[in-house]
Amino acid sequence: MTLFGRKIPVVFSLAIWFFAWELIGRAGWSTIVPPVSSVLEAGITVLGTDKFSAAALISLRSFAIGMALALVTGIPLGFAMARLPGVGRLLGMWVNIFVSAPISALVPILMAVIGIGETTVVVTVYLFAVFVIVLDTQVGVKHADRSLVEMARSFGARRRQIYVHVLILSALPEILAGVRLGAIRGVKGVVIGQLLVAIIGVGELFELYSQHFLMEEFWALVIVVFLFAFAVSEAIAALERRVEYYASAR
């Protein structure tokens, strides 16, 4: 936006939001909205506690392992579904169902079968992330430029070379888009999984704070988790922009 002919940076709009939050908190309109200054104060205290570091460690570990599994299984599966027609036809329907189905409903199954612990959260992250990665990889590989593949063939490229040099690179923009969406979902998976399991990680802290009505700590944790989600999505988006030039060249 411009005011008096000058561009105002977007950060200022966030500053206004925080200022409004502070005012509402000070006015004491609602017991669940403390002033943002005391939230930040509580945040600094919370970040220093052992409990938070332990929760953060567990959450990050679950996220990292779940995402890693989703990547190493999801991308090859997407490739297989795009290149081998039988696989695509057998699995396509289920991938489409689970990409939009409420995965959160499956968490009780995981809790019953696997138990109440970190593994359940890891599997939750995996299930949240994997389907969109499979789907986008499949789309990317399917839409990979046919003439590029023909070009590679006409120069005598072998099957393996076509995969490595043409298909993967050509599908990279879609794969990365899928990875970004998968990562955003994965973060949601960590939080939802831990909330439902309720005895580990940040999920435990959320429960603890809301039950003991520690609103400052609660909101501080919300801000930290939201910022983490935003940072993850922006980091992958930055990677996407780096390959954008050949997405637009196609």
Binding site: V10, V190, I192, F206, V225, F230
Partner: peptide
């Protein structure tokens, strides 16, 4: 817009307990 972008990527489920 900045708020909406952040909220879209954020795990909104976190505030369900609240």
């Amino acid at each position: 817009l900045p708020v909406v972008i952040i909220l879209q990527a954020a795990p909104m489920a976190a505030i369900i307990p609240l």
